[in-house]
Amino acid sequence: MRLPCPLCGERDHSEFVYRGDANVVRPDAEAPGAQRAFHEFVHLRANPAGWHKEHWYHEMGCRSWIVVERNTLTHEVRGAVTAAEHTLARRPAPVADEGGR
């Protein structure tokens, strides 16, 4: 399988480490019900048959975490962005402190 690192270009999958669903968001530790939210965050996954956005780590390349869109049935891969970009894009409000404080 070949994965399209957004920074390095298309590379063999052996350069990467797989982690899993990139749609899960680390819950707020202070919010009520945090323990259940964290349990779901750590242990529960949707495991879809079909398109999946997932985290891969380009460990043997640029060491970026990336979000790959892969079809779990056909292994078709239709794109990737850096995880940082993915996280920042999902933040609800404009991120006032983007790029550091």
Binding site: R19, Y57, L88, V95, E98
Partner: peptide, 16 residues
Amino acid sequence: MQHVDYCHQVHWPELD
């Protein structure tokens, strides 16, 4: 190393 990269890039990419 993988873990710290993950925490930074995925959870808190806004941190310098």
